[in-house]
Design a protein around this nucleic acid. Structure first.
Length: 491
RNA sequence: GGCGGCGUAGCCAAGCGGUUAAGGCGACGGUCUGCAAAAUCGUUAUUCCGGGGUUCGAAUCCCCGCGCCGCCUCCA
């Protein structure tokens, strides 16, 4: 296995990944603010870091993975007030909804999924530490972090305080000593949830929760911290400032940021209203098709969403499953392969092993899932060749190579990418049922017609057989005659 | 304005100085098939936004343009 390399936002280049205390790896990813349904952008971040998590475990690391839920913030408060529910009720609802989405998308559960409101003591302790060290100040029940006290402020996003002051779109609050100072603690406002603190009742600011929870679960220096590119400034910059000011130690060894999902090249976002929710997508596509789409682009690049492209990936996925389906039906007819098959079989086996290496190297190279997917589809090609080689009389040796391929698909596709892990027969039946329902077609009718056509074919009544096929074709049903019977699919 | 990124076939996309520029979707032709479909074989980028430069050699490095996007405010 070649060394693993990641693009570290902090140093702006790809660097070898060396965990602080192998085999342990600590990893923190910014989760969602639970105030609305999650969209494709949230799904991308979750799926990308899910594959990272899977890959690190696959190569033998013991990964402690934390992904938080922000369950108290301005948007949650506003939304809860609009709906006349408590912030807890609202957050709970969307956390549950997100969990459903993640489960459907086969995103593995992180080791811990902490919520901000369940870590108020840790947050307060961290703020106190910052005040003691002179990095934070109290104004009328608010506590602010003083960016000028932290000389390295801006190191992640590549800005200086001067530059940012110049372009200042930052609202100047008379309470802040510097426009970029940010709230660690916000004084209670009437009708808003609040907690006791040394500075009076109030609630935590946004940035502090991630530092507090990351340190609580993972220690003062963590290996990996992930999140969307849009979090680099100010959120992650602020996390660094708070954490490193408090501990005097590096907070994160490797910062990883995923690119945005775009629509017509524009960022998908709530405010632009150009978002598609995960639930809407799941209603139209197989979850694995979504994963395939989300992983088809390198994680740091923008990913432009369009139904056509998602469907293209879905078709590719279906084709792969159809190959697996046929492969699974093979039964050995003889013990030994025909002599002229021995060499191709040996070559197929060798190619499969080679593809596995290439696949893993792709992931090791800054999680290049797009390349890895390419290698995986080359496995499909090998399997199709094998299928052809098998013909109607596969030998035990043919089957052995077939199983090697199937296992490889389960390992690389299933275990690492979270795709192609269903039973092909179940996958195909699910697709059929979904398509039948969409088009309002009757399975019984289709199957009866197919049976009738098969009888006609046996009787060599091809005119009748073709008439039935045309009829089914008009219904959107495509037929494919195989040695094991007629395979059908609804387009 | 500052910082960062992108521009590869009809569409999506890999490629990080050196074999025939991965892979997917699509299109066209051959094989297979009763005919289809699927599969398979071949064709579909003599060339990587444009122009210079470095180099024995560049899609890959440098410079100058053009176009697009993200961040600088809450945001995955």
């Amino acid at each position: 296995m070649k060394e693993i390399r990641f693009y570290n936002t902090l140093v702006r280049q790809k660097v070898p990944f060396v965990p602080l205390a192998p085999p342990k790896v600590t990893m923190y990813v910014c989760g969602i603010t639970a105030y609305d349904e999650s969209h494709l952008g949230h799904a991308r971040a979750a799926v990308v870091f899910d594959v990272l998590y899977r890959f690190l475990r696959f190569v033998g690391y013991e990964v402690v993975y934390v992904r938080n839920y922000t369950d108290i913030d301005d948007k949650i408060i506003r939304r809860a007030q609009e709906e006349g529910v408590t912030t807890q009720e609202l957050a709970e609802r969307y956390i549950r909804s997100y969990d459903e989405d993640m489960k459907a998308l086969k995103v593995l559960r992180p080791t811990y999924e902490p919520r901000a409101t369940e870590h108020i003591p840790q947050i307060i302790a961290l703020i106190e530490r910052l005040i003691q060290k002179g990095y934070a100040y109290v104004v009328e029940g608010d506590v602010y972090f003083s960016v000028e006290k932290f000389p390295e402020y801006g190191k992640l996003s590549g800005r200086s305080l001067e530059e940012m002051k110049a372009g200042a779109r930052v609202s100047v609050s008379d309470k802040k000593r510097h426009p970029l100072d940010f709230a660690l603690w916000k004084a209670e406002k009437p009708g808003e949830p609040s907690w006791e603190s040394p500075w009076g009742r109030g609630r935590p600011g946004w940035h502090i929760e991630c530092s507090a929870m990351a340190m609580h679960y993972l220690g003062e220096t963590i290996d990996l911290h992930g999140g969307g590119l849009d979090l680099i400034f100010p959120h992650h910059e602020n996390e660094i400032a708070q954490s490193e000011a408090a501990t005097g130690k590096p907070f994160v060894r490797y910062w990883l940021h995923n690119g945005m999902v775009t629509v017509g090249r524009e960022k998908m976002s709530k405010s632009l209203g150009n978002f598609v929710t995960v639930k809407q997508m799941l209603a139209r596509h197989h979850p694995e098709a979504l994963r395939l789409f989300l992983l088809s682009m390198h994680y740091r690049s923008p990913l432009d969403y369009s139904e056509k492209v998602v469907s293209d990936h879905e078709k590719a996925l279906e084709g792969f499953y159809e190959t697996l389906y046929l492969l699974k039906r093979l039964e050995p007819e003889t013990d030994a392969p025909a002599p002229q098959h021995e060499k191709p079989l040996a070559e197929a086996s060798k190619t499969l092993a080679h593809l596995e290496t290439r696949f893993c190297e792709a992931l090791a190279d800054d999680l290049n899932t797009a390349k890895a997917i390419g290698e995986l589809f080359s496995v499909e090609k090998v399997l199709n060749h094998l299928l052809k080689l098998c013909g109607r009389r596969p030998s035990a040796k043919h089957l052995e190579v077939a199983h090697q391929g199937i296992e490889l698909v389960q390992k690389l596709g299933g275990k690492l990418l979270g795709i192609l892990e269903e039973d092909p027969e179940i996958f195909i039946e699910k697709r059929r049922n979904r398509a039948l329902e969409e088009k309002g077609l009757s399975r019984e009718k289709i199957e009866a017609l197919i049976k009738e056509r098969e009888e006609a074919r046996r009787a060599k009544d091809y005119a009748r057989a073709d008439a039935i096929r045309d009829e089914l074709g008009k219904m959107g049903v495509l037929l494919r005659d195989t040695p094991w019977g007629t395979f059908w699919k609804v387009l």
